[in-house]
Amino acid sequence: MKKDEVPQDLSSLGKITKEVCYATDNTGKYVTELSSGWEVKIKALDVAWNDIEKRIESAKEQVLNNHASPLLFFMEYRLMDIGILADYTGFWKWQIKRHLKPKVFNHLSDKKMQRYAAAFNIKVEDLKNMTLHED
């Protein structure tokens, strides 16, 4: 693809970042060019984000129905799995699985709650109440 043919279709991520693409210049040499995206990639990202939004909503319902602790909601919201959360908190994976149970979560110490809150970059009270503050 030639340098002037690099797609510049604006997506939601295109407002935040650009992607480096390789293209040929007038002399036929490969050069890098910034692209804000292209239609096919935009559609693929939209599908992925819709899936993520459904997972977040499902997690929220599970918490509200007392089938899971707020950890599940924040894990989905922050795009984390148990392994990633374990790395951030220092808890073992089996401990996090146990803390996903509402009865266990409700009896966690303040120190453990603080570790989770720090991992999600929220306050302990927000963790307990499943409250989001968009910045």
Rank of each mutant, 00 (worst) to 15 (best):
E39N: 09
D46K: 05
W38T: 09
L45P: 01
N50G: 05
I42R: 02
W49P: 00
E53N: 09
L34F: 08
K43A: 14
V31L: 11
V47Y: 05
D51P: 00
W49H: 06
K41L: 09
D25P: 00
N26P: 04
I52R: 12
V31Q: 06
G28Q: 05
A48W: 02
L34H: 01
S36R: 08
S35G: 05
N50T: 03
K41I: 10
A44L: 13
E53V: 09
E33A: 15
D51I: 12
K54Y: 06
S35V: 02
G28A: 12
S35H: 05
E53H: 08
K29F: 09
I42D: 07
N26G: 11
E53C: 10
S36C: 13
A44P: 07
K41E: 08
I42K: 11
N26D: 03
T32D: 03
A44G: 06
W38Q: 11
K41C: 12
I42T: 14
V40M: 12
T27E: 03
W38G: 11
V47K: 09
W49F: 11
V40W: 02
G28W: 01
E39V: 15
D25H: 04
G28N: 02
K54M: 15
Y30M: 14
S35A: 14
K41V: 08
Y30H: 10
S36P: 02
